[in-house]
Nucleic acid binder design. Structure first.
Lengths: 144, 144
DNA sequence: CTCAGTGCAAAGGATTTGCATGCCG
DNA sequence: CGGCATGCAAATCCTTTGCACTGAG
């Protein structure tokens, strides 16, 4: 799967006129290995010799290429994960206390109902919807 | 309704050992009048002579008293609105392009299903959920 | 008189940008 | 060669904090 992942990422970056450099490959590996959204310090810890500013720049580049997405929590900083269409559609459990974020999926029927409702809703309000974000706020096993 | 609102706010602040000062009353009025989450500059514009730092401090105070809540968007700053139980449970339409946020409500049955699903999900994962956040990301009438 | 609230200026912290250098295409 | 990528340091921007002052109980 790793090889496929890199191939897809390469394609998307090239489609956006960008290169798939070693550092970007490392970032993708780090995020893929993590399996849940990482804050910047965690990303830096994931690989030695990464310059903070370059990591930020590369995350922006990867985000523009639809390879990575920035996740918002209650914390004062962002977290990053691989784009949904690379890992599968999912939602987040966010711990109010320690900020940890964990991925979850909800039953397909519920998901479908929600999606239908939202599309309809968007139409009624005159907006065009491109997606949704559903987060569960609570306390994790360790903090609960 | 305005009188009731202020009465409730006063009660909650007092319950938290805080005062309902003129400035806080103004903030509540501004947010109530807006009807959608406001960024700080908009709040400041809403009333003359408000010191930025005091507004931040008072928003924190109001948040602690469960009168105001901070809303996360894709923007690099927060937006503020009156707490849900004062205005009714709702979700947000967030414009990817200009950052505007608009309130929406979804049909009660769908809401109920979601709530049920999430409670169940939380149980299965060992987390305790206190709430959820559902945002629709898209483009607004003006930007679309 | 006491203590929360306020304003101003300075500090903090995440993220971005300027600039010189390195390297892939 | 030409231009994107990288690292370092400096700059930004939102938000928080220190401190002195005011005002309500």
């Amino acid at each position: 799967m790793s090889a496929d992942l890199h191939a897809i990422v390469a394609t998307r970056l090239h489609a956006d006129g960008q290169r798939y450099t070693p550092q970007r490959r490392r970032l993708v590996d780090i995020l893929a290995r993590a399996g849940s959204p990482l804050a910047l310090p965690q990303v830096l810890r994931g690989g030695r010799g990464l310059a903070q500013s370059s990591v930020y720049r590369n995350l922006v580049a990867l985000e523009r290429a639809k390879v990575v997405s920035r996740v918002l929590t209650e914390e004062e900083f962002g977290r990053y994960e691989l784009a949904e269409d690379l890992t599968g559609h999912h939602h987040h459990l966010i711990c109010e206390n320690c900020g940890t974020v964990e991925d979850v999926t909800i039953p397909a029927p519920v998901e479908a109902t929600m999606r239908r409702t939202m599309t309809k809703l968007a139409g009624e309000t005159g907006w065009s919807t491109v997606g949704h974000r559903l987060d569960l706020i609570g306390t994790c096993r360790d903090c609960g």
